[in-house]
Write a protein that binds this DNA or RNA. Structure first.
Lengths: 344, 344
DNA sequence: TTTTTTTGTGCAATCGTTATCGGGAACGTT
DNA sequence: AACGTTCCCGATAACGATTGCACAAAAAAA
């Protein structure tokens, strides 16, 4: 794996490495003819500066690290596509790591990316992360971090989120207007920002329509490992309530499909017995049985905005503490899984 | 972002950097007491060796590059999970890049990864890649590369694939045994290995059951950009044939869901009018309408085996040219989308 | 006591690149 | 003739870590 270096060029052309370096960077203090000589030779030999040497020298890498819970999830893979499209155009490379919703892996990934001198970090928190010191320390050392989707409350920086409150409000309202009254909410762990925001929207809608909030209709499910069992147990509990729900609002890809699987196995008829609205970016919502009413997050756009903010932070370190939190509108698409009860 | 270096430790302890370095690597020639002193101090200050400096010095990085067409695809994200699980345990980091099925991006990603001194490459070819010199040159320079899923014919190295021929044969056979005779095949570009292998299995099954092969039943679809339009046009052609197919065997996630979308829009009844079997790892096959018969690739396992082969190649550069091509069995799951015609 | 061996440590080079400093040559100005 | 500019270019020192070599001091052998 021998590659050509500046030193080789210098030797071949009988120049010093400094001259070659400057010629390649088109410095004004180099004779145009020498420049041409060097550039042509470099071109011919297909010279590429060694980014590792540059990183070592400058302590930067022109790359940004992305830490997300899980790639195998449409929301996150769209997020990545958004991130990559912008980063690529701005000359940054994107290095992706999965936390698999584990705190330890999140910390390990963070450390590795930092040791690799990424210029900044884009993070969506693992669902099991409650301790944030690993990020706080880095921010104090001046590493730019932008959070997206699953963001922490106690860290001051740019954040990009979906308007979870409104999305959730609209979903719940839609179910109410479709004639449902006993609306359950299957959601993520309580210490995630998205959980509390969505819960708030759900509650507000119930309140606005004069429906009493019933805690037993809300189930918080861990992600990770044994999702199936988790789901099944939670749903089982819902279905065996004295007054079982006539609608369910699920808060993620996994929870939604998990819920539908359980309903399918148990022979629960959707939407006749229970209506479903999913807060999910699943790509085949229209092909499901029945087609699924979804609240979609603008994942691509969220990724794009987050990376823009991050790169701005990298290139113009902020004096003032004017951090913004951008909240992007969700899109509800109504399909059969939540049609009105009047049909029955 | 100041981090502690070996130099800082040396200064603090009044030693030379060489002594510190050796102490940290537990060299026999260092006084046990000095060692202890250094190690404790390093521990206390949370010292981590700078991997960039090491990469520069040794021209290796303890990381492997992965180039795949698209993350937002269950097959590939499971592949990644398989790769990561093994690589992580063996002390390697995984850097993921998407080619988005573009030849140019594949080349760009390759160059970048090489310049970053990855120790090896795991590649699933972009569907638009026909020229392989960028990989061939690297292999000649000694860079270990293992291909998986979409593998090239003309490069000698380890490869890991699904048994596309048999998987395809079984799918086709299943359709035949379900009473279908006019079986279409919607597949990827012809110059991909997976395309020809699957086509061969399809043809063989037809032949074995005495059904004439009809080229007009086979449609090759480009990936990338305008998938929808591509799909729709191809399917339109199939449906308007003098003898339209009564079954369709689709060769990828995208092709399968695209096909189902078109059928849904056009009101084509599945499986009554046309049966579908998809060569896909889509996770919600059972939730689709109708539940989809699938031939699944053992994605996780393919990733694991590929990375094992790669790391073996990295750590024990091969003398002999005994490269293996591992072919892993696919799993067919029969669901309603392909039930027998006798039902009608 | 002298010589040899062992033990523990430091110096300097290396990896590829660039920034800093400095200097020689050619020219212009008094 | 003496000095200041301008134009090109080179030597050197970083960046962080490892390592072959040298070398002093202490211990062992003579």
């Amino acid at each position: 794996m021998e590659t050509i270096t500046i030193k080789d060029i210098a030797k071949a052309l009988n120049l010093s490495t400094s001259t070659v370096s400057r010629a390649l960077r088109n410095s004004y203090e180099i004779n145009p003819e020498t420049k041409k000589l060097v550039m042509e030779y470099a071109e011919r030999m297909n010279y590429r500066p060694n980014p590792i040497a540059l990183s070592l020298k400058d302590s930067k890498s022109k790359s940004i690290g992305v830490i997300i819970p899980e790639i195998a999830n449409h929301f996150f893979s769209q997020l990545i596509n958004g991130i990559e499209s912008i980063a690529y155009n701005l000359g940054y490379h994107v290095v992706i790591f999965q936390s698999h919703d584990s705190y330890e892996r999140e910390v390990a990934n963070t450390n590795y990316l930092v040791s690799r001198r990424v210029d900044g970090l884009l993070v969506s928190l693992a669902s099991l992360t409650t301790n944030l010191v690993h990020f706080q320390e880095l921010m104090e050392k001046g590493l730019p971090i932008v959070f997206l989707d699953r963001v922490p409350n106690d860290i001051e920086t740019h954040k990009v989120v979906a308007d979870n409150f409104t999305g959730s409000y609209e979903a719940t309202e839609h179910l109410i207007l479709s004639g449902r009254r006993r609306i359950a909410h299957l959601t993520s762990p309580i210490y995630l920002s998205i959980t509390t925001e969505r819960l708030a929207g759900y509650k507000k809608a119930l309140e606005d329509y004069g429906i009493a909030f019933d805690e037993s209709y809300v189930k918080y499910c861990l992600y990770g490992g044994k999702i199936e069992a988790e789901n099944e147990a939670a749903i089982e509990e819902l279905l065996t309530l004295p007054e079982p729900p006539d609608a369910i609002f699920t808060a993620s890809d996994r929870l939604t499909t998990g819920c539908m699987s359980v309903f399918q196995r148990k022979g629960v008829r959707v939407p006749d017995e229970v209506a479903i609205v999913g807060f999910t970016n699943i790509s085949v919502a229209n092909l499901l049985n029945p087609p699924l009413t979804t609240v979609m997050q603008p994942a691509m756009e969220m990724g794009q905005q987050a990376v823009e903010l991050l790169i701005r932070l990298i290139e113009h370190p902020q004096k003032n503490d004017l951090f913004e939190t951008r909240s992007l509108k969700t899109v509800m698409t109504i399909r059969e899984s939540s049609v009105g009860k009047t049909v029955v």
